[in-house]
Amino acid sequence: MTSYNLKGRRVLVTGGARGLGAGIAGAMARAGADVMVADLLEEEGRATVSALRKEGARAAFVKLDVTSEADWERGIARTLEELGGLEVLVNNAGIEISALLVDIDPEDLRRMLDVNVVGVALGLKHGLRAMRPGGKAGAGGCIINLSSVSATIALPGIAGYSGTKSAVDRMTRIAALESGKLGYGVRVNCIYPGLVPTAMGTGLAESMVKLGLAPSMDAAVRDILGQTPLGRLGEVSDMADAAVFLASDASRFITGIGLPVDGGMGM
């Protein structure tokens, strides 16, 4: 019988203060894991930790800018100090700035590249270093990166974002290959979430209207639903449960994949 029980595992979730990250942190905690919530949003991050503790979880907060090497070093060290180890890293932090290709602002694109690509690369770097044999945690484990359905299909208005999430997919597969060949004992996978009505998801729908790609918010959502065989938007719990699966022994022989959690939208 395979188990989704994460008792005894220590998890670091970036962008864990709110939205999808907070949902993943909560699901990991309910599965028995100890959780470090990492985010730039200190007040919201501490509130998320407080809520987890009220549910009986062992949880802590660290302020972490994923684009900063020094912050990653401090975040990993703080996780080891507070939780006593690290077996699971969730690279969830990301940003989305919509624009038609003819109107792309290079600074917006560079910002997305810095957070979504460099941030994940640094997470992979420091997560693998910590979890591999001889690392400060040294017990192996897994890394879960958040890509997007936009890495698998073409959607208008988000070329820059789509490019960064495609990069996350490629880095995931190369990290899994390097980890396996070098004996790190760390599985690396990613998730392709569909549209979830968090602040980012709602902002995306609003952007489609502003860019002239949909006449209204309702029309933008209907367009997404029309491309989704299951006929509904994603929920935070859909993505969080998939992350728990990839962190658990139920996925012990799975590495280097992109798991679509999109209601069939990207098929």
Results as ranks from 00 to 15, higher is better:
residue 101 L to N: 10
residue 51 A to M: 12
residue 190 C to W: 02
residue 97 I to H: 08
residue 250 A to Y: 07
residue 38 A to L: 03
residue 141 G to S: 02
residue 153 I to G: 06
residue 53 R to K: 11
residue 84 G to E: 04
residue 195 L to Y: 01
residue 162 S to R: 05
residue 232 R to P: 12
residue 162 S to H: 01
residue 114 D to E: 11
residue 180 G to W: 06
residue 234 G to M: 07
residue 60 A to K: 02
residue 207 S to H: 09
residue 124 L to T: 14
residue 145 N to M: 08
residue 72 W to V: 10
residue 262 D to C: 07
residue 248 S to I: 09
residue 199 A to F: 02
residue 250 A to L: 06
residue 173 R to M: 14
residue 194 G to E: 06
residue 205 A to L: 09
residue 172 T to H: 06
residue 124 L to P: 15
residue 253 F to R: 05
residue 36 M to N: 02
residue 226 G to L: 04
residue 142 C to H: 02
residue 227 Q to V: 01
residue 141 G to F: 02
residue 245 F to K: 15
residue 239 M to R: 11
residue 154 A to T: 14
residue 118 V to S: 12
residue 155 L to Y: 13
residue 178 E to S: 13
residue 173 R to T: 13
residue 191 I to W: 11
residue 177 L to M: 14
residue 199 A to R: 13
residue 266 G to S: 15
residue 14 T to W: 03
residue 10 R to T: 01
residue 163 G to I: 05
residue 22 A to N: 11
residue 101 L to K: 02
residue 160 G to F: 10
residue 105 D to L: 06
residue 5 N to P: 13
residue 166 S to Y: 03
residue 143 I to D: 09
residue 132 R to N: 03
residue 267 M to I: 06
residue 11 V to W: 02
residue 162 S to L: 03
residue 182 L to T: 06
residue 163 G to F: 05
residue 222 R to W: 03
residue 77 A to D: 13
residue 223 D to V: 07
residue 90 V to G: 07
residue 236 V to Y: 07
residue 28 M to Y: 03
residue 242 A to E: 15
residue 30 R to F: 00
residue 164 T to Q: 06
residue 175 A to D: 11
residue 53 R to D: 00
residue 211 L to Q: 12
residue 145 N to S: 08
residue 2 T to N: 14
residue 197 P to G: 00
residue 76 I to P: 09
residue 253 F to V: 04
residue 76 I to Y: 13
residue 262 D to H: 04
residue 218 D to G: 10
residue 135 G to W: 09
residue 201 G to Q: 04
residue 13 V to G: 00
residue 12 L to V: 00
residue 36 M to A: 02
residue 98 S to C: 12
residue 150 S to P: 01
residue 12 L to P: 02
residue 210 K to S: 13
residue 170 R to A: 14
residue 111 R to A: 00
residue 35 V to E: 05
residue 112 M to I: 00
residue 201 G to I: 01
residue 249 D to T: 03
residue 122 L to I: 14
residue 50 S to G: 08
residue 248 S to P: 10
residue 108 D to Y: 06
residue 52 L to S: 05
residue 89 L to T: 05
residue 126 H to L: 15
residue 107 E to W: 10
residue 254 I to H: 09
residue 180 G to T: 14
residue 203 G to R: 13
residue 125 K to R: 15
residue 3 S to H: 04
residue 212 G to V: 12
residue 223 D to G: 14
residue 106 P to I: 07
residue 252 R to V: 01
residue 145 N to A: 10
residue 253 F to E: 02
residue 222 R to I: 00
residue 5 N to D: 15
residue 50 S to L: 12
residue 267 M to N: 06
residue 124 L to E: 15
residue 197 P to H: 00
residue 55 E to T: 06
residue 114 D to A: 08
residue 21 G to N: 05
residue 212 G to D: 11
residue 55 E to Y: 00
residue 85 G to N: 11
residue 266 G to P: 01
residue 153 I to H: 11
residue 263 G to E: 09
residue 147 S to P: 03
residue 71 D to Y: 01
